[in-house]
């Protein structure tokens, strides 16, 4: 937990001048189940990516690179929507 700032140290009006700083907030801790990506079975159709509410499917150059477990909440949409089914994405219980 970061130290709370004083009134004189925060911008006026409640504004947040750091765009996209929520990346530092880890919603991955919410997860009770995790999608596991199987690169060899993946055809990089990106259905998992376009349907992810949390932008947690890492894509580079049009190809899936992995899963952002810092933010993935484990909703399971990617696994459900993957046309390769169990071959490319599998849902596992969190340890």
């Amino acid at each position: 937990m970061t130290k709370l700032k004083s009134a004189k140290d925060i911008p006026i009006g409640g504004i947040i001048p750091e765009p996209g700083n929520s990346r530092a907030y880890r919603t991955g801790e919410w997860r009770s189940q995790r999608p596991v990506w199987i690169p060899e079975g993946c055809v990089h159709c990106l259905m998992c990516w376009v349907y992810c509410p949390d932008n947690a499917i890492e894509v580079e150059d049009g190809k899936v690179k992995g899963i952002d477990y810092n933010h993935c909440k484990g909703c399971g949409i990617c696994v459900r929507e993957c046309p390769r089914k169990e071959k490319a994405l599998r849902l596992e219980r969190e340890a």
Binding site: R23, T27, H44, L46, M47, P53, G62
Partner: peptide, 21 residues
């Protein structure tokens, strides 16, 4: 989707919408 994936994301992770929203 490959083309779309190259575009910048405006809504980034770390938001606290429910899982699967």
């Amino acid at each position: 989707l490959r083309e779309l994936s190259r575009m910048p994301e405006v809504l980034v992770p770390g938001h606290r919408m429910c899982a699967g929203c």
